[in-house]
Computed example of a mutant assay.
Amino acid sequence: MVKDAVEGTWVNRVGFTQGQVVLEIGWDEDVDDALRENVETVVGSPLEEDQFDGVVDAVLLWWRDGDGDLIDDCVDALTTLADKGFLVVMVPQAGHPDHVEAAEIEEAAQTVGLKASSTAKAGAWIATKLVQGGTQKQR
């Protein structure tokens, strides 16, 4: 896939751009490899695996109902995220048994000091961009 083919897609709408380092968390056999390739095409490099310990510009977090604690995964994502970095939470679309409601994503984001800034349909997934600067709640 050439870069022009993904211009104007969900990848660009949530803020991925050329040259970013992107960490991927939550990969499993159900993820859409074409969506992963879209991100890699736009940023110009492979996604980093969850063992990566450098600073990243963005985190791609695949999340499903039953995956554990979204708040904990958001906190983990923040440990390597650059000051102006962002997190994109990918959840299965409504109607899928593992779908996660937007309210749950927003609550987790607010708890860790992030805020939802945009959402885009991405194949059978929904991408929600979380940016730094939300109000952190006491846990």
Rank of each mutant, 00 (worst) to 15 (best):
M1H: 12
M1W: 08
V2W: 06
A5C: 02
E7D: 10
E7Q: 10
E7I: 04
T9M: 11
T9P: 00
T9G: 12
R13I: 02
V14F: 03
G15K: 06
F16R: 01
G19F: 02
G19Y: 02
G19K: 04
V21K: 13
V21M: 11
V22G: 08
L23Q: 14
W27L: 14
W27V: 12
D30I: 12
V31H: 04
D32I: 00
A34T: 09
L35C: 04
E37K: 03
N38Q: 12
V39T: 14
E40T: 01
E40C: 01
T41V: 09
V42S: 04
V43P: 12
G44A: 05
S45A: 07
S45D: 04
P46T: 14
D50H: 06
D50K: 02
F52I: 05
F52S: 08
F52K: 07
D53A: 14
D53L: 11
A58R: 02
A58M: 03
L61S: 03
W63K: 00
D65F: 15
G66D: 07
D67A: 11
D69E: 12
L70G: 05
L70Q: 04
D72S: 08
D72W: 00
C74N: 08
C74G: 03
V75P: 00
V75A: 13
A77K: 01
L78D: 07
T79K: 04
T79Q: 12
T80M: 03
L81K: 12
L81D: 09
L81T: 10
A82V: 08
K84P: 07
G85E: 04
G85P: 01
G85Q: 01
F86L: 10
L87W: 10
V89T: 12
V89D: 08
V91E: 05
P92A: 11
Q93C: 13
A94V: 13
G95R: 15
H96K: 11
P97W: 06
P97T: 04
H99R: 10
V100S: 11
A102K: 05
A102G: 09
A103K: 09
E106H: 04
A108H: 10
Q110M: 15
Q110A: 15
T111D: 10
V112N: 02
V112M: 03
G113P: 00
K115H: 15
S118D: 03
S118M: 06
S118T: 14
A120V: 02
K121S: 13
A122T: 03
A122S: 10
I126Y: 02
I126V: 15
A127S: 00
T128R: 10
K129A: 07
K129P: 08
V131K: 01
Q132A: 09
G134Q: 02
G134P: 00
G134R: 02
Q136T: 07
Q136M: 10
R139K: 07
